[in-house]
Write a protein that binds this DNA or RNA. Structure first.
Lengths: 140, 140
DNA sequence: TAAACAGATGCAACTTTGTTGCAAAATAAT
DNA sequence: ATTATTTTGCAACAAAGTTGCATCTGTTTA
């Protein structure tokens, strides 16, 4: 774990600091997406709010994480797959929000379908967010 | 226009008040989606911020408008088609955000494709937001 | 390894966005 | 026209996000 974290930071030419390590660890040990508030809470408010914002911003810029638009318009972040480089992401997967347990996750195996746009429109990115009931919640 | 507005309000059993009429007019005379801030500005700050929030909330509940999640996580609203009733919407269309002019619009003719979810997952709603360059901006 | 540099952090102050309770005003019903 | 019901505006607040700056930490180089 420690190694993975340091690897990611080094690969992105980021200095290894307390907040970056801790926040990356959170993402690695968690399968779902995290909101800014989650991160503050789960770091035990050890870091300043501003630091968390800036750390997330850096991770976003580097393509380490990506943000997910949700229908209630809260901001969520999730780890990118390795093939996301600086500048542009290619998170070509569907996001799923469970209405029962509230978890938001990446469905890495579900690719975004092609969309036939009207004449004159050109797309650069397509976001698909599915709401429903996740695997775990459907077992009850 | 005036009639259309009053019609919509009556149909939804809402009293006809200044802010509701004005805000509905904004939506009707505009093809794109509106952010809360747009509405405040374009009503000339005639109405209290709180009133605008509450009016939008009422319109949402009644199914007169729907909200659109965007990748930059701002909240946008757009008029629903007539067949949206109170409680649940069926805005089965794709939303488009133009990266050039910033307009967000409903592509009413582009329906949301079926998504094949992994075993155990059940969907209730699917949101598709496409970023790119709109018709108007591609003519330049 | 220590000094020097660059970058990251924390703090304070502030802006923007959204919410709540309540009294006053506007709308609808009688 | 009067009453009852909604809606509105105000004030105060809470949450979310930003900026500038001094201080501290991590990295580099000698």
């Amino acid at each position: 774990m420690q190694e993975a974290v340091q690897d990611i930071l080094k690969k992105n030419q980021l200095s290894i600091t307390g907040s970056r390590v801790k926040i990356l660890e959170l993402f690695l040990e968690q399968q779902g997406a995290l909101a800014h508030g989650d991160i503050e809470r789960r770091t035990g408010e050890k870091f300043d709010r501003v630091t968390v914002y800036r750390t997330l911003q850096v991770f976003l810029n580097k393509g380490i994480i990506h943000s997910i638009p949700t229908s209630d318009n809260s901001v969520l972040y999730a780890l990118c797959k390795d093939d996301c480089g600086e500048g542009h992401h290619h998170d070509n997967h569907v996001h799923f929000v469970c209405d029962t347990c509230g978890t938001t996750m990446c469905l890495d195996d579900v690719t975004v379908p092609a969309i036939r746009l009207p004449k004159g429109f050109k797309f650069s990115e397509i976001q698909v967010v599915v709401n429903g009931r996740c695997k775990d919640c459907n077992q009850d």
